[in-house]
Amino acid sequence: ACGLCEDERFSRTGVSISCDAGMCRNYFHVTCAQREGLLSEASTEESIADPFFAYCKLHGDKNIARSKRCNWLALQSQAKDKRHEDKPPSDEKARVERKLAWHREKYLATKAKKPPAWVPTQKMPRLLTTSPAACKKLLKKAEMLGMSPQTYLTNSDTMVNIRKKWHIQPAFSVEFISYYLDRNNRMVSMQRHLDELLQQNSKLQEEEQNVRQKYEQVFIINVYKY
């Protein structure tokens, strides 16, 4: 899940990348990292396979990220203002387009040197929640039907009380979904606990058999002795 999404409902959609700082387990979308000013590019002097990298908020430089975020907000503001203006392209826009074209050529040259990525030969099924477009359409449909899209966000008291409810009527409700997810988690934990108990039982049976054999040997020796 993306840790930088402003809307939690879209945090598990699309493709996320991991932080490039060692063993860091933080993930985020490229567009979200761009919004927060966390994207970076290696210097031209370094010859590495992938010159593009990104750090999370914990491992990134806050001052550099703040300046990049300010630049991103300024570009978004300018783009928003220019959408409503019908003016010929200015020198600033031409300079930005030349810079963008230079970066595109550099990216394509770097991409051509890398081995081709694996592409599936046939269509593969995936979860509906991984598509941002589908999630947006479902949210729009929920708003048109007068349903609140925030009903799935339950508080901690409700989640705690779900454990005490074992007979909830199946329905597309917050209580039943929470109960269903909690039941699956409990089934997994019970199965894991059962496997551990079976392993302990097998070990105890082996120990009991060894002790019984030793007891019989000692008993036979004592019988012959006396």
Rank of each mutant, 00 (worst) to 15 (best):
E105I: 03
A133V: 15
P132W: 00
Q122T: 15
L100M: 10
T130V: 15
K106G: 07
A101Q: 10
P120A: 11
A134W: 09
K106H: 07
K99M: 09
W102H: 14
A133W: 13
K123I: 15
A134V: 12
K114N: 10
P125D: 07
R98N: 13
R126G: 13
A133R: 14
A109C: 05
Q122E: 15
K114H: 14
K111P: 00
Y107Q: 02
E105K: 06
H103Q: 09
Q122N: 10
V119T: 11
K111Y: 04
K99C: 03
P116L: 09
P116W: 01
Q122G: 09
K114M: 15
Y107F: 07
P125H: 08
C135I: 13
T130L: 12
T121D: 06
T129S: 13
L108D: 04
L127Y: 15
H103K: 12
Q122P: 00
P125Y: 11
K111L: 10
L108Y: 02
L127G: 13
L127Q: 12
P120H: 10
T121A: 08
W118V: 06
A109H: 09
K113Y: 01
A101M: 07
R126E: 13
A133P: 02
Q122D: 12
R104S: 05
A117K: 08
P116R: 08
L100S: 09
T110A: 08
S131A: 01
P115L: 09
R104I: 11
R98K: 15
A101W: 05
A109P: 00
W102K: 14
A117G: 08
M124P: 00
L128D: 02
T121V: 05
